[in-house]
Amino acid sequence: MSPRSFSTPLLRVHGISKNYGHHVALRSASFDLWPGEVLAIVGESGSGKTTLLNTIAARNRPDQGRVEFAVRDGGLQDIYAMSQAQQRLLARTDWGFVHQNPADGLRMDVSAGANVGERLMGLGHRHYGKLRAIATDWLERVEIDANRIDDTPQMFSGGMRQRLQIARNLVTQPRLVFMDEPTSGLDVSVQARLLDLLRQLNRNMQLAVVIVTHDLAVARLLAHRMVVMHRGAVVESGLTDQLLDDPQHPYTQLLVSSVLQP
């Protein structure tokens, strides 16, 4: 049976807008996301892509529109109608958020093992040995040497910190992960490693991902679908390869043709 036979989308975004005074940061964005899908939000600086990500991740209330998430034991629920407690619980269990700068998504002065185990401890896991075993397993899955489990991220390279951030987010098997430019600032070979990891996690865990990126190659590699933003509006959306190979909108065409091919 195809794992895609679900009746409701995992995330439904409908008509969300956001203004800062006169500045229109976001202009009525809508899309559905289904389990296991990777959606890339691409655009240049100031396009509104990060604003969009933050509104759908319950980090920034939109001025208009709704964001609904299919909670585990129930249907689609408006995330902004939830209590703060419910939102925070969601953020720690069924969702993940990978920051551009890993230091924003990690406890830098706490060991790698504790960083990975924290969500579980927050859910009531009380066996040190088992927590450590789970943390070790995850470190291996993100290709961090398990011997570094007691080191703090201060001692890790940028790529390792980013992979640790991913492990920290995925330990509770979330169904949806938001990522804000996760590969920015990393060396190309390190990026490749991280993207490979994300690709596998998406495949093996049926993980839905919304990834903001300005790098079309990242979108090509990871995303099934893509949304192109320009000045706060979604100018085009569809299958990633279609948008990159046969862009319709003038701005999309400009974006695609501007990318240097090595």
Binding site: R88, R92, R107, V110, S111, G113, A114, G117, E118, R119, L120, M121, G122, L123, R126, Y128, L131, R132, I149, D150
Partner: peptide
């Protein structure tokens, strides 16, 4: 939300 408190105890045991 007391996961953080147990993080401290975890760290102690690890160290």
């Amino acid at each position: 939300e007391y996961g953080l408190m147990h993080v401290k105890l975890y760290e102690d045991i690890a160290k």
